[in-house]
Design a protein around this nucleic acid. Sequence first.
DNA 1: TAGTGGTCTAGACCACAAA
DNA 2: TTGTGGTCTAGACCACTAA
Lengths: 243, 243
Amino acid sequence: MSTEKIETLARPLYQQVVDIMMRRIAEGQWKSGQMLPSEPKLAQELGVSPGTVRKALDQLAADQLVTRRQGLGTSVAVSTRADMLYRFFKLVDGAGKRFMPDCEELQRKVQSPGRLFAELFHLKAKQKVISVFRRRTNGDQPIMTERVTLPIPAFIGIDKLEGPLPTTLYDFFEMDYGLKVLRVDEKITAVVANPEDVEYLGVEPGTPLLAIERTAYTFNDQIIEHRLSRLRTDNHAYLSELT
Amino acid sequence: MSTEKIETLARPLYQQVVDIMMRRIAEGQWKSGQMLPSEPKLAQELGVSPGTVRKALDQLAADQLVTRRQGLGTSVAVSTRADMLYRFFKLVDGAGKRFMPDCEELQRKVQSPGRLFAELFHLKAKQKVISVFRRRTNGDQPIMTERVTLPIPAFIGIDKLEGPLPTTLYDFFEMDYGLKVLRVDEKITAVVANPEDVEYLGVEPGTPLLAIERTAYTFNDQIIEHRLSRLRTDNHAYLSELT
DNA sequence: TAGTGGTCTAGACCACAAA
DNA sequence: TTGTGGTCTAGACCACTAA
């Protein structure tokens, strides 16, 4: 039986069920890819009607936290490479099509966070961040550089890893650290190419580039990644779809 | 009684109900702000159960086509200035806050569409477009210029209007032409300020700017607006929120 | 064949808004 | 007080999946 109590009527019952299920996923009690109990079993366990469980599961499915398949059941959503690419990778090529960029890790270092990152990641004294500098290419054409900063306390042992980090980081975060990226903010500005851009992107000095500052959130609005990208837009563009 | 038939079982019943209601809104049978019949009345009229109507209305509410208020009823959503601003205006100031920009119309002209716009708007021979050039400011600081192009066949009489167009165009489209903007695509690139930018945005030649190419869609994926914006990002930024 | 989610129905009770 | 949508329940039947 569940240890969570459903008592107060402050929030709708189905919302409380959503909360309970989200907590179970966040805490790893239900792991990525794992099947959930069937709707009738959940209803019985939580002491609510099947319709209420269904409404909660539908909401979780809309938030892409679970995957429902008729005849099979409901499972905790797994972030595949392709999924995350389409979900958070908003670049298109000259023809307006999405593409799968290659990735090259150029530098990786552990360092003190500085005041801004310490605040962003809620780090305590002496806790460190890891910073990865990578270049993305489409075929042999350089497109973008990105400087990814991660709080080491959230990724324990990441500073001991050998070899480059995986190209698609978010499925790696999920599989190896149980950290699911739920939401991303990107602040976009226009900048001119500096010497580093000239070196890694192969552009002329003074070329205009997009600077994209990304903040990635997991459960409870906790920030687990900061990323600064610099993007050539002579053959590519950033696509923003608003509904 | 309804003239629409609910027969085939190819699509779920509630989906067919959504389709019928969307069509009624698109065709102006249910106008912006108008109250819909109550759920039981709709259920009776369409010959489905109240639960099915409810599911359809919930989906329309999620798509922001209707507004539901307990104790009051369901009405066709109205796009207020503030609503549309928050929904489609993705700029933030230096502090990361949204703001309400001022607007100044600098030029307006009727012209032949050219091949690209003719194709985009599905225009027939001799049909024209109207092009509006405007400057947006925050206080006395110029932020952005925008060149809005509209197909005149979709906005009959717009070429005869006196005085500048309203600052927020989308509620104007909806009120005066029954055209509801449902979705917007924006393709963002980095460019260098040209002489026109220097003149209207007060920047130095060579300053990097964001170029934002927007396409706005109404029902049936019909395109009703094209917009080219050029944005200073020295004190502002484009904010993209991905979920 | 058994079990799952997908759909559809029918009703109960509650909270809210307006007259 | 009346009528609305918001919530919750209880079940029926269907379509799909896997064994």
